[in-house]
Simulated assay, not measured.
Amino acid sequence: MMAQEDAASGSGSKFTFHPLPNRTFSFLENRDTRELLTKWSMNGRITAQAFRYDQYFQSYQKDVFVLAFFQDPNVTSHLKLLTGSSGQWTALGTNVKKIEAREVPCTHLSMSLFDRLQEENIVKESGYISKCLDEYVDDFVVSDELRKVLLLEDSDKYEIFSPSDRQEFLFLLFKHLCLGGAVCQFEDTIDPYLDITKSIYKELLSVQKDPATQQINIISSVFKVSAYDEKGLCYPSPKSHEQTFAYLIVDPLKRHVIVLYHCFGGGIF
């Protein structure tokens, strides 16, 4: 679904946004995590930023909300993206005309989704990832069973994850980390991927206990987003790639928006 420029004017309230420059993210600052992101060719090409908004938001307003986000001067002057072959960080700074926003399911409260990797012998009991003969899929070398189950739809075990599993934010985050950047050095064991996925997932999402059931529920809404100016696609990059992505994670209680951004490439900073 693509929202046009005049969609925001049709809403009952105009969303406004303000950057939160002092909000830090441990996965960008923790030394061990940064070392792994560097190994995976993502460090310096992945970032997170926080903004607050002033109006009440419900998920059915996503197109109006996301369009207002990308058209707000406080966002266009602060939202970072990588540009050019040299990979320079710059602010968006363009007049967004339309957006695409897809709601991403976000229901998992544990990492048990990935237990089936060991159950299916994709990962050994020791944690080592089973190897396979090299295959090539677009920009990715498939040299083990993990990347096979992530990328090759005709592989024997692709169906161990259902279409709905593969749409979940937890799965997408895990897949992004496993595939990495243009000069990614893959792990031999599964734990680093699971550990970093878990830490980022927990840090980005907000949860709340239901007073009636005492159950913990995720209250954040997640949207995968793209923005277009008069020239075409401008964010997260003018060049589309599976590993170039931007997610908006909306906390309706704090009225915060976190942007998780990555641009595929080979530069390490």
Rank of each mutant, 00 (worst) to 15 (best):
I216D: 11
I46W: 01
W89L: 07
F140V: 04
A3C: 09
V141D: 03
G44E: 00
Y201D: 02
L117H: 01
D134M: 06
L150V: 00
K198G: 13
Q185E: 15
F171Q: 04
L173K: 05
K157N: 12
I249R: 01
S237F: 06
V259P: 00
Y128C: 10
K175G: 01
Q58G: 07
D72T: 10
F264T: 00
S155L: 06
I219V: 12
G180F: 00
V225E: 02
V142P: 05
N30P: 07
Q214V: 03
P192K: 14
A182W: 03
T16D: 06
C263P: 01
V257G: 00
F25P: 02
S85K: 12
F27Y: 15
T76C: 09
T94K: 09
A101I: 07
L152E: 03
E119T: 15
Y193C: 09
D134V: 11
S59V: 10
L146T: 10
P211F: 07
T213L: 13
F69L: 11
P73A: 09
I196W: 06
F269S: 01
K202T: 15
Q58R: 10
A8N: 08
S221E: 04
N30R: 09
E159Y: 05
Q71L: 06
V104I: 10
P236M: 01
G127L: 11
K39A: 08
R147Y: 01
K39L: 13
I129R: 03
L109H: 06
H176Q: 15
V225T: 10
L170C: 09
P192Q: 13
Y60V: 14
S85D: 11
L36N: 13
V225N: 02
G93S: 04
I218W: 02
Q185W: 11
N95A: 13
D115L: 15
S206A: 12
L109V: 04
S85R: 11
S13V: 13
F223A: 07
S220H: 03
N43I: 01
R166A: 03
Y235E: 08
G181W: 00
F65L: 03
I46E: 02
V64N: 03
E5D: 10
Q61V: 01
K254L: 12
H108S: 15
K124H: 14
K239I: 14
L67G: 08
P252S: 14
G232W: 11
Q167E: 12
H256K: 09
Q4W: 08
S206C: 13
F70V: 04
Q214W: 04
Q55L: 05
M111D: 07
T24K: 13
S240N: 12
G181M: 02
F65I: 04
